[in-house]
Protein backbone atom coordinates (compact mmCIF):
# COMPACT_ATOMS: atom_id res chain seq x y z
CA UNK A 1 0.00 0.00 0.00
CA UNK A 2 1.42 3.40 -0.95
CA UNK A 3 1.86 6.00 1.77
CA UNK A 4 -1.30 7.83 2.73
CA UNK A 5 -2.91 10.04 0.14
CA UNK A 6 -3.31 12.64 2.83
CA UNK A 7 0.21 13.83 2.20
CA UNK A 8 -1.10 16.73 0.21
CA UNK A 9 -3.21 17.88 3.17
CA UNK A 10 -2.50 21.32 4.60
CA UNK A 11 -0.95 21.83 8.05
CA UNK A 12 -2.89 20.43 10.96
CA UNK A 13 -6.58 21.38 10.55
CA UNK A 14 -8.25 22.94 13.61
CA UNK A 15 -10.32 19.86 14.38
CA UNK A 16 -7.11 17.91 15.01
CA UNK A 17 -5.22 20.52 16.98
CA UNK A 18 -7.55 20.46 19.99
CA UNK A 19 -8.73 24.03 19.49
CA UNK A 20 -12.35 23.27 18.65
CA UNK A 21 -14.80 24.07 21.44
CA UNK A 22 -18.44 23.23 21.36
CA UNK A 23 -20.96 26.01 21.65
CA UNK A 24 -24.49 24.66 21.58
CA UNK A 25 -26.98 27.31 20.56
CA UNK A 26 -30.41 27.47 22.21
CA UNK A 27 -31.67 25.84 19.02
CA UNK A 28 -29.56 22.82 19.89
CA UNK A 29 -26.92 23.03 17.17
CA UNK A 30 -23.23 22.83 18.02
CA UNK A 31 -21.33 25.61 16.28
CA UNK A 32 -17.85 24.07 16.77
CA UNK A 33 -16.05 27.31 17.61
CA UNK A 34 -12.35 27.38 16.84
CA UNK A 35 -10.12 29.15 19.35
CA UNK A 36 -7.51 31.60 18.14
CA UNK A 37 -3.99 30.24 18.61
CA UNK A 38 -1.22 32.02 20.46
CA UNK A 39 0.39 33.28 17.26
CA UNK A 40 -2.81 34.91 16.07
CA UNK A 41 -3.37 36.48 19.46
CA UNK A 42 0.16 37.87 19.54
CA UNK A 43 -0.10 39.20 15.99
CA UNK A 44 -3.42 40.87 16.71
CA UNK A 45 -1.99 42.48 19.83
CA UNK A 46 1.12 43.72 18.01
CA UNK A 47 -1.10 45.24 15.32
CA UNK A 48 -3.15 47.01 17.98
CA UNK A 49 -0.02 48.15 19.77
CA UNK A 50 1.33 49.54 16.50
CA UNK A 51 -1.94 51.40 15.89
CA UNK A 52 -1.94 52.79 19.43
CA UNK A 53 1.66 53.97 19.27
CA UNK A 54 1.10 55.38 15.78
CA UNK A 55 -1.96 57.31 16.93
CA UNK A 56 -0.16 58.57 20.01
CA UNK A 57 2.77 59.86 17.95
CA UNK A 58 0.47 61.44 15.37
CA UNK A 59 -1.69 63.08 18.05
CA UNK A 60 1.38 64.36 19.87
CA UNK A 61 2.79 65.91 16.71
CA UNK A 62 -0.51 67.52 15.79
CA UNK A 63 -1.01 68.91 19.30
CA UNK A 64 2.57 70.16 19.39
CA UNK A 65 2.19 71.89 16.03
CA UNK A 66 -1.10 73.44 17.14
CA UNK A 67 0.54 74.60 20.34
CA UNK A 68 3.37 76.22 18.39
CA UNK A 69 0.91 77.82 16.01
CA UNK A 70 -1.41 79.46 18.51
CA UNK A 71 1.01 80.24 21.36
CA UNK A 72 -0.48 80.77 24.77
CA UNK A 73 -4.23 81.07 24.63
CA UNK A 74 -5.38 77.48 24.35
CA UNK A 75 -2.23 75.80 25.62
CA UNK A 76 -4.06 74.50 28.64
CA UNK A 77 -6.80 72.97 26.52
CA UNK A 78 -4.20 71.30 24.32
CA UNK A 79 -2.47 69.89 27.36
CA UNK A 80 -5.74 68.45 28.61
CA UNK A 81 -6.43 67.08 25.15
CA UNK A 82 -3.09 65.29 25.11
CA UNK A 83 -3.62 63.80 28.57
CA UNK A 84 -6.98 62.44 27.55
CA UNK A 85 -5.68 61.11 24.24
CA UNK A 86 -2.99 59.25 26.13
CA UNK A 87 -5.40 57.93 28.75
CA UNK A 88 -7.91 57.00 26.06
CA UNK A 89 -5.43 55.12 23.91
CA UNK A 90 -4.09 53.24 26.90
CA UNK A 91 -7.40 52.30 28.51
CA UNK A 92 -10.35 53.04 26.29
CA UNK A 93 -9.06 51.81 22.91
CA UNK A 94 -9.54 48.09 23.56
CA UNK A 95 -12.74 48.52 25.54
CA UNK A 96 -14.46 50.77 23.02
CA UNK A 97 -13.71 48.53 20.04
CA UNK A 98 -14.69 45.35 21.83
CA UNK A 99 -17.97 46.90 22.94
CA UNK A 100 -19.04 47.22 19.31
CA UNK A 101 -21.08 44.48 17.63
CA UNK A 102 -17.98 42.90 16.12
CA UNK A 103 -16.40 42.54 19.59
CA UNK A 104 -12.95 42.94 18.06
CA UNK A 105 -10.21 45.55 17.98
CA UNK A 106 -8.84 46.44 14.53
CA UNK A 107 -5.98 44.01 15.11
CA UNK A 108 -8.31 41.14 15.95
CA UNK A 109 -10.59 42.03 13.08
CA UNK A 110 -7.69 41.92 10.66
CA UNK A 111 -7.03 38.35 11.76
CA UNK A 112 -10.68 37.34 11.78
CA UNK A 113 -10.89 36.99 15.56
CA UNK A 114 -13.44 38.14 18.10
CA UNK A 115 -14.03 38.07 21.81
CA UNK A 116 -16.81 35.81 23.03
CA UNK A 117 -18.22 34.87 26.37
CA UNK A 118 -17.07 31.41 27.48
CA UNK A 119 -20.54 30.35 28.57
CA UNK A 120 -22.03 31.25 25.20
CA UNK A 121 -24.11 34.08 26.65
CA UNK A 122 -24.00 37.70 25.56
CA UNK A 123 -20.70 39.53 25.98
CA UNK A 124 -21.29 42.21 28.60
CA UNK A 125 -19.58 45.56 29.12
CA UNK A 126 -18.26 44.56 32.55
CA UNK A 127 -16.58 41.47 31.08
CA UNK A 128 -14.88 43.64 28.46
CA UNK A 129 -13.72 46.11 31.09
CA UNK A 130 -12.39 43.31 33.30
CA UNK A 131 -10.46 41.59 30.53
CA UNK A 132 -8.82 44.83 29.48
CA UNK A 133 -8.08 46.21 32.95
CA UNK A 134 -5.79 43.23 33.45
CA UNK A 135 -3.59 44.51 30.64
CA UNK A 136 -2.10 46.70 33.35
CA UNK A 137 -0.30 43.71 34.82
CA UNK A 138 0.06 41.80 31.56
CA UNK A 139 1.60 44.49 29.43
CA UNK A 140 2.43 47.66 31.27
CA UNK A 141 3.92 46.08 34.38
CA UNK A 142 6.44 43.91 32.45
CA UNK A 143 7.17 46.95 30.26
CA UNK A 144 7.89 49.04 33.32
CA UNK A 145 10.28 46.42 34.63
CA UNK A 146 11.90 46.12 31.20
CA UNK A 147 12.48 49.83 30.94
CA UNK A 148 13.90 50.12 34.45
CA UNK A 149 17.68 50.33 34.30
CA UNK A 150 19.26 49.23 37.58
CA UNK A 151 22.42 47.55 38.68
CA UNK A 152 23.42 45.43 41.68
CA UNK A 153 20.74 44.25 44.09
CA UNK A 154 18.16 46.50 42.47
CA UNK A 155 18.94 44.83 39.18
CA UNK A 156 18.10 41.45 40.67
CA UNK A 157 14.86 42.81 42.07
CA UNK A 158 13.95 44.17 38.65
CA UNK A 159 14.78 40.80 37.10
CA UNK A 160 12.59 39.01 39.64
CA UNK A 161 9.80 41.47 38.93
CA UNK A 162 10.18 40.94 35.21
CA UNK A 163 9.99 37.18 35.61
CA UNK A 164 6.99 37.44 37.87
CA UNK A 165 5.10 39.82 35.60
CA UNK A 166 6.26 37.89 32.54
CA UNK A 167 4.22 34.95 33.79
CA UNK A 168 1.11 37.03 33.17
CA UNK A 169 2.22 38.16 29.75
CA UNK A 170 2.81 34.55 28.71
CA UNK A 171 -0.28 33.20 30.47
CA UNK A 172 -2.01 32.16 27.20
CA UNK A 173 0.76 29.66 26.50
CA UNK A 174 0.10 27.79 29.73
CA UNK A 175 -3.52 26.77 29.32
CA UNK A 176 -5.53 24.73 26.88
CA UNK A 177 -7.98 27.47 26.04
CA UNK A 178 -5.31 30.09 25.28
CA UNK A 179 -6.80 32.39 27.90
CA UNK A 180 -5.10 35.60 28.87
CA UNK A 181 -5.21 36.37 32.57
CA UNK A 182 -7.82 38.94 31.59
CA UNK A 183 -9.88 36.32 29.76
CA UNK A 184 -9.80 34.11 32.82
CA UNK A 185 -10.98 36.95 34.98
CA UNK A 186 -13.72 38.10 32.65
CA UNK A 187 -15.04 34.68 31.60
CA UNK A 188 -14.24 35.34 27.96
CA UNK A 189 -12.16 33.78 25.22
CA UNK A 190 -11.03 34.75 21.77
CA UNK A 191 -12.40 32.71 18.90
CA UNK A 192 -12.07 32.72 15.16
CA UNK A 193 -14.99 34.31 13.40
CA UNK A 194 -13.74 34.43 9.84
CA UNK A 195 -15.89 35.74 7.03
CA UNK A 196 -15.86 32.91 4.56
CA UNK A 197 -17.09 33.12 1.00
CA UNK A 198 -19.23 30.29 -0.28
CA UNK A 199 -17.13 28.84 -3.09
CA UNK A 200 -18.49 27.07 -6.14
CA UNK A 201 -19.76 23.56 -5.62
CA UNK A 202 -17.10 21.30 -7.10
CA UNK A 203 -19.60 18.57 -7.86
CA UNK A 204 -21.37 20.94 -10.24
CA UNK A 205 -18.34 21.55 -12.42
CA UNK A 206 -17.31 17.92 -12.23
CA UNK A 207 -20.73 16.79 -13.35
CA UNK A 208 -20.18 18.18 -16.88
CA UNK A 209 -17.87 15.31 -17.61
CA UNK A 210 -20.15 12.65 -16.23
CA UNK A 211 -20.63 11.03 -19.60
CA UNK A 212 -16.95 10.91 -20.49
CA UNK A 213 -15.90 9.33 -17.24
CA UNK A 214 -17.83 6.17 -16.55
CA UNK A 215 -16.28 4.94 -13.35
CA UNK A 216 -17.15 1.45 -12.33
CA UNK A 217 -18.66 0.83 -8.93
CA UNK A 218 -15.44 -0.75 -7.67
CA UNK A 219 -13.43 2.25 -8.85
CA UNK A 220 -15.67 4.68 -6.99
CA UNK A 221 -15.56 2.56 -3.88
CA UNK A 222 -11.80 2.98 -3.52
CA UNK A 223 -11.95 5.92 -1.09
CA UNK A 224 -13.81 7.31 1.91
CA UNK A 225 -14.79 10.73 3.29
CA UNK A 226 -11.32 11.65 4.49
CA UNK A 227 -9.83 11.18 1.05
CA UNK A 228 -12.76 13.04 -0.49
CA UNK A 229 -11.97 16.09 1.63
CA UNK A 230 -8.31 15.94 0.75
CA UNK A 231 -9.26 15.75 -2.90
CA UNK A 232 -11.60 18.74 -2.48
CA UNK A 233 -8.77 20.66 -0.94
CA UNK A 234 -6.38 19.76 -3.76
CA UNK A 235 -8.82 20.83 -6.45
CA UNK A 236 -9.64 24.10 -4.68
CA UNK A 237 -5.99 24.97 -4.34
CA UNK A 238 -5.44 24.26 -8.01
CA UNK A 239 -1.66 23.76 -7.95
CA UNK A 240 -0.85 21.85 -11.16
CA UNK A 241 2.07 19.96 -9.61
CA UNK A 242 0.05 18.62 -6.68
CA UNK A 243 -2.92 17.87 -8.90
CA UNK A 244 -0.73 15.82 -11.24
CA UNK A 245 0.67 13.77 -8.37
CA UNK A 246 -2.71 13.12 -6.82
CA UNK A 247 -4.33 12.29 -10.15
CA UNK A 248 -1.52 9.89 -10.93
CA UNK A 249 -1.94 8.15 -7.57
CA UNK A 250 -5.71 7.82 -7.96
CA UNK A 251 -5.34 6.50 -11.52
CA UNK A 252 -2.95 3.87 -10.30
CA UNK A 253 -5.12 2.89 -7.36
CA UNK A 254 -8.36 2.49 -9.34
CA UNK A 255 -6.67 1.16 -12.47
CA UNK A 256 -7.81 4.00 -14.76
CA UNK A 257 -6.16 3.94 -18.14
CA UNK A 258 -7.56 7.03 -19.85
CA UNK A 259 -5.22 10.02 -20.22
CA UNK A 260 -7.58 12.98 -19.81
CA UNK A 261 -6.25 16.25 -18.36
CA UNK A 262 -5.64 15.88 -14.60
CA UNK A 263 -8.02 18.64 -13.64
CA UNK A 264 -10.98 17.16 -15.50
CA UNK A 265 -10.19 13.71 -14.22
CA UNK A 266 -10.02 14.85 -10.62
CA UNK A 267 -13.24 16.90 -10.94
CA UNK A 268 -15.15 14.00 -12.40
CA UNK A 269 -13.80 11.56 -9.85
CA UNK A 270 -14.65 13.96 -7.04
CA UNK A 271 -18.25 14.26 -8.24
CA UNK A 272 -18.61 10.52 -8.60
CA UNK A 273 -17.03 9.74 -5.24
CA UNK A 274 -19.07 12.33 -3.44
CA UNK A 275 -22.28 11.07 -5.04
CA UNK A 276 -21.53 7.56 -3.88
CA UNK A 277 -20.51 8.52 -0.36
CA UNK A 278 -23.49 10.82 0.10
CA UNK A 279 -25.85 8.08 -1.00
CA UNK A 280 -24.34 5.80 1.59
CA UNK A 281 -24.61 8.61 4.11
CA UNK A 282 -28.33 8.84 3.45
CA UNK A 283 -28.55 5.15 4.22
CA UNK A 284 -26.89 5.79 7.52
CA UNK A 285 -23.33 4.81 6.81
CA UNK A 286 -20.53 7.33 6.88
CA UNK A 287 -17.44 5.79 5.36
CA UNK A 288 -14.65 7.45 7.32
CA UNK A 289 -11.74 6.65 5.04
CA UNK A 290 -10.53 4.11 2.56
CA UNK A 291 -9.88 1.51 5.29
CA UNK A 292 -13.46 1.69 6.50
CA UNK A 293 -15.62 -0.83 4.63
Amino acid sequence: MPPSDARAAPALPPEKSGRVRSLVTPEGVDLHLVLADAGERATAFLLDAAIIIGCLIAASIIILLLALAIQGVAMELLGILWLFVFFGLRNVYFIAFELRTGAATPGKRALGLRVASRDGGPLTADAIFARNAIREIEVYLPLTFLLTQRTGVDGWIVLAGLTWSGIFALFPLFNRDRLRAGDLMAGTWVVRAPKRRLLADLATSGADDRARFAFSSAQINAYGVKELHVLEDVIRRGQAQVEAEVAERIRRKIGWTGSEPDREFLGAYYAALRGRLETRLLFGHRRKDKFDV
Binding site: T124, D126, A127, F129, A130, A133, M185, G187
Partner: peptide
Protein backbone atom coordinates in the same frame (compact mmCIF):
# COMPACT_ATOMS: atom_id res chain seq x y z
CA UNK B 1 -12.89 34.38 39.21
CA UNK B 2 -14.99 35.31 36.19
CA UNK B 3 -17.97 36.29 38.31
CA UNK B 4 -15.78 38.27 40.71
CA UNK B 5 -13.95 39.97 37.84
CA UNK B 6 -17.14 41.13 36.17
CA UNK B 7 -18.59 42.40 39.43
CA UNK B 8 -15.34 44.19 40.19
CA UNK B 9 -15.34 45.68 36.71
CA UNK B 10 -18.74 47.31 37.27
CA UNK B 11 -17.40 48.88 40.43
CA UNK B 12 -14.28 50.02 38.56
CA UNK B 13 -16.39 51.90 36.02
Amino acid sequence: VGAAGRQGAILMF
